[in-house]
Design a protein around this nucleic acid. Structure first.
Lengths: 349, 349
DNA sequence: GGTTAGCACTCACCTTTAATGAGTGCTAAC
DNA sequence: GTTAGCACTCATTAAAGGTGAGTGCTAACC
């Protein structure tokens, strides 16, 4: 790994050039375009060494050199310079990501859209896993004879509701009482916690009518809780890949779109990534079908804890410096937005 | 339009063949494959006539004939035979579309997915416009000092909620009272109706505290109502177009995907279509960019009134008989599912 | 007069061939 | 160690020729 200063310089130039041109870069153009102070022949010798070391490859004998995944990794870790976002973009991001009223979903969707626009890549965002989220409030409301609405409010402000059709008859008072009992019983417990419990037994000792009502509502309650655990995925800028030379091949474009459209699988990959800004390049992706993509994810926090993710996926040849800057700026912004929301309304806990 | 029996027979054969093969069809293959009882030369003469009448075109002099949009129209209106769905498919549809508990959104999304799977086309579904939907129930619930949850239940069972952060202080009793007043005031009115009203004035004469609370909640109330009006769009099977020869051209595939991904515009087109099973072929589409697609939509009903839509979009060369059968079977199923739901729970109105 | 066989003609498509040029690897001289 | 020079490679493009599916037209047939 101890490359000479000169080799690093050459490698840097090759990666930077290839990222912009998408064309294999040759010794001649390199010596002309970049002020390296050495002749093409010398560059050729160095490139030959770099190839032997696994940093470059050759599409065919008479073509220029192309960076390998290893080269991109070196570039990202050591060579790439910090890219300062233009004020204009900063402004756009800040203005678009202020959330007036805790509308998490809308804000996140918006963020994904913005990210794809600024990077010209396919972007995505997921909402946080809710498993550490605690219940705060459970409410049952009468709608008509056979329909009640179940509403669950969590500590982080997430509200979920579902209309239930039940066969047991009830009175509004029954419902209200049951709401109170349920709130009292489950308040402060996490969703996943409640889901693992044999819930019916809590209520079997209550008076007959209440117990039957409770039993008819509980399965739905569990079901709704399960749905609350679901992570939402927002995908934006899908058609951006058509502007990328690497995907000018119909078969590759198809593979790419099919991969990200297999939402269930794609989400699994995202959810299981570590927190922080994570960049995986080509081969480094454990998923076979992502092997010629780079995936960049970063997380944003809500109330300092619950973590959602935001990022892009594209060809290994991407503007890592710009993209990471945009993502970082956006996740910082999101975290700050939601942090403030917390500060303002959760002092009472 | 009074084509001879024989011309119709030939045209039918050409359309049917082309729909399956996607290749221009020539006189020789036609006479071999279909039992028309006439020689290729005669067929050529007839085809020449049909071309003159605008039913066929010629990609180039030495190619076979290709049906025009006009031919497809004739085929759809008069030639195509009723296609009976295989029992297997009927079973799949019925089993997948039973909705246990009025989860409209989930069921509709599911339907779109199923439709794309059965037709190998890109499918879509939209939820009904809510503008005729009447309010039934408005509820405000305290969460903490600065947060309340606003919940709105409509007559058709749709429930919407939103967490609001308000700056005015309140008591639970205030909230409850306000809920009752709002429910009393707006119950039975349609959403769009309420939206066009100067709502604040309803409350300005109430006692001071209530009025301020009401004023701080009303903008959010309106906002939530507006969101209730939104129609959801579910798009499925996007990558199916890659299996269609017509879209083997990267530029066309891109155009197609960009068109359907411009959700706002695409939804407008869908919403503004007439009800019933509507087929528009190529040129017949008013939208420039859909000019080489066919769009098929049908509607499903909820409680016999509110109408959502379901359909597919693909190349003009599509299996109209099969696709229309699938769609019809699905919309019938959906309407029936939701109809039953109505019968069961809305007798009290 | 409608139908058909025959034949010249067209044109997309494929293969072959040749020219071009960007780029390399190697060698020998600086 | 660096560089100039040169032979060599190979993707890419253009031109040329061959192939075959299909047409349009004409003249003969029923």
């Amino acid at each position: 790994m101890d490359l000479t200063e000169r080799k690093l310089k050459i490698l840097h130039a090759i990666v930077a050039d290839f990222i912009h041109s998408a064309e294999p870069v040759g010794s001649r153009t390199l010596s002309k375009k970049y002020d390296l102070g050495i002749s093409p022949a010398t560059i050729r010798n160095e490139m030959s060494d770099l190839e032997e070391l696994g940093y470059l490859t050759h599409p065919h004998t008479s073509a220029g050199r192309v960076p390998s995944d290893k080269a991109y990794r070196l570039y990202v870790n050591h060579l790439m310079e910090r890219y300062e976002l233009p004020e204009e973009e900063k402004r756009i991001i800040s203005e678009n990501l202020k959330s007036d009223m805790m509308e998490l979903e809308r804000t996140i969707e918006h963020a994904a859209e913005l990210l794809s626009r600024l990077t010209n890549l396919t972007s995505f965002a997921i909402t946080p896993k809710q498993d550490a989220n605690r219940l705060k409030y459970i409410n049952l409301l009468p709608v008509d004879d056979t329909t009640v609405v179940l509403m669950i409010v969590a500590e982080n402000g997430k509200v979920t509701n579902q209309a239930l059709r039940i066969s047991v008859s009830y009175t509004p008072e029954n419902l209200e009482l049951l709401s109170k009992v349920m709130t009292h019983t489950f308040r402060g417990r996490t969703i996943s916690d409640v889901l693992t419990v044999d819930i019916i037994k809590y209520f079997e000792n209550d008076i007959e009518a209440m117990s039957r009502l409770a039993q008819s509502i509980m399965p739905n309650f569990m079901n709704t809780l399960e749905n609350m655990l679901n992570v939402d995925l927002y995908l934006e800028g899908l058609t951006n890949i058509f502007s990328i030379p690497e995907y000018n091949d119909i078969e590759r474009a198809r593979m790419f779109l099919e991969m990200v459209n297999r939402k269930k699988d794609f989400m699994d990959v995202l959810i299981n990534r570590d927190n922080g800004m994570i960049i995986t390049i080509g081969d480094e992706n454990t998923d076979e079908i992502m092997r010629d993509c780079s995936l960049i994810t970063a997380d944003y926090r809500i109330n300092g804890k619950l973590v959602g993710k935001l990022g892009v996926i594209g060809p290994t040849r991407m503007k890592y410096d710009e993209v990471t800057s945009v993502i970082r700026y956006m996740t910082d912004n999101l975290s700050r937005t939601f942090q403030i929301a917390k500060g303002e309304h959760e002092d009472d806990e």
